[in-house]
Each structure stands twice: as C-alpha cells, then as structure tokens.
C-alpha cells in the first residue's frame, strides 16, 4: 500500500516535470546548478535552485523601495555575472554606478540603455533577452501586459538569459507571465554586536508568487560575501500567496 503511494507521488512529480518542460520551463542546465548564496530561500524554488533563464518580476511603490529592489537585483546580477555583461534598461536615470560595486557588480560591465517609454523599454529588453552573451537583463518597466510578458518569456527560452523586470508603480499590479513576483522592503539594519551606526543592508524579501515553488518571506542581509538569509518569515507575507501554475 505504502509502496503504491510512493509510486504515485513519483508519478505525479514526473508528470509535473513533463508539463513544465512542455510549458518551456526546462530544468536548469548542468552549469546552471549553482547556488548563488540564497541559503534558506532555495527551499522555495522549483528544483531547489534559483531559477535562471526565466523572467522575474519585482514590484516597488516608493523611492525607498526602488532603492532596496535595485540593491537586491544587483546582488542577483552580481552573482550571475561571472562571465558576461548586464544590460540595464531604464526609463529614468536613477541608478548610481559606483553604488553597484558594493553588490559585487563591476559597474563598467553594466550597459545602461535609456528608453523613452515603456514600449521602447520592452523592445530593448526583448532584444537583450535574445542575446545569449548577456548574463542578465534588467528592465525598469512600469506597465506591461500579459502578452508582452509572454514574449519576454519566449525570448529567454532559447537564449538562457535571466531577466528582471522592475515595476515601479502605484497602481494595483496586473498579472503577468513571469516565473516569480518579488517584493523587497527595507528593514532596520543590524550592525551586529550592538555597534552604533548603520549596518549592512537588510531587507524583507517577499516571494509572493513562484511557479512550482512555495511562496514565502525572509529577512535577508547583504554582507560583502553575498546574501545572508537569516530567517524565514512566512507569517509576514503581506498579501496571501498568489495562485501559481
């Protein structure tokens, strides 16, 4: 009896994997099985590894949130950057290149592209995502439709580039076809051992939506060695986990 249940679970898992592949979500390639230092958070991801070669969505509403989201994204970009450049599509010049250095990104390896509007930014991002020599593409796009986001997903399926859409918007956020939706908020920094002054960056990282994973929330610090996920904070998820699939 027990044997049958295990077999059944295995069967379901196998089928799920097949469905994923049909949907264009291939399991990570060999060299993509790389832990980028997200520790505890890996439990939430499908296959227990940060999904690369897909498009992630980040939402921010205030200038402070824009800054911490940029910080978190550049931490990810830095971890993925090992051997490639990053294209950063912006509609407003706000990122200060020397500030990227602290997050393990060589600022001169980031190519910024100014777009005059959402439409142009989307086009640039799609072109960037098709270019397989880039390690990652960051796009600051405030609004995009489901169809447009689907196009981006199709672009990365061949090129294996990782995309990050950063939506700075006040409006309620429409659903788009991204593998995940993140929300980063600043939290009080801890300098450790009770030292005065501002410590290392600390964030409340909410993974509101993740395809085939488990949404959750964590407190993440940034140290010179990379991310440090201190504790899972499931209870603090500000919106109920979105339905995925």
């Amino acid at each position: 009896m027990e044997q049958a249940i295990i077999n059944k679970a295995e069967q379901v898992q196998k089928l799920q994997k097949e469905i994923l592949e049909l949907q264009g979500f291939r399991p990570p390639l060999e060299h993509e099985w790389r832990d980028i230092g997200l520790g505890l958070m890996n439990e939430a991801f499908p296959n227990k590894v940060f999904p690369v070669a897909t498009v992630h969505e980040f939402v921010s509403t205030s200038a402070e949130e824009v800054a911490v989201t940029c910080g978190f994204i550049s931490g990810l970009v830095g971890a993925l950057m090992n051997n490639g450049a990053c294209l950063w599509v912006t509609t407003k010049r706000r990122v200060f290149a020397p500030g990227l250095k602290a997050f393990g990104v060589k600022p001169d390896q980031v190519v910024f592209a100014d777009a005059s509007g959402n439409k142009e930014a989307l086009w640039m991002m799609e072109e960037g995502l098709k270019c397989n020599t880039l390690a990652s593409v960051v796009g600051e796009i405030s609004e995009l439709s489901f169809t447009e986001s689907r196009r981006l997903q199709l672009a990365v399926e061949d090129s294996r580039v990782t995309g990050f859409i950063h939506r700075h918007t006040q409006k309620p956020v429409a659903h788009i076809a991204c593998v995940s939706r993140w929300r980063i908020k600043p939290v009080e920094s801890s300098s450790g051992c009770g030292m005065p002054g501002v410590g290392m960056p600390s964030w409340n990282v909410e993974l509101q939506k993740i395809r085939n994973g488990k949404p959750g929330a964590w407190i993440v610090n940034w140290s010179p060695n990379g991310f440090r996920v201190t504790r899972a904070d499931i209870g603090r998820l500000s919106v109920p986990a979105a339905k995925t699939g």
Partner: peptide, 27 residues
Amino acid sequence: NENNALANLLDRIAGRAGTQSIRRYLP
C-alpha cells in the same frame, strides 16, 4: 564571437533610440 553579438545588440538599440541612449560608466 561573444563581443560581436553584444555590439550588434547595442547597434540595434542605438539605431532605434540613438547613440546617446547607451550609457556605460567608468570611474
């Protein structure tokens, strides 16, 4: 030809949005 691919991409972007739209920063 990794550089070529990247440069080709930037050419396309510059062709549409102008050369001034591409920025890199140096210290």
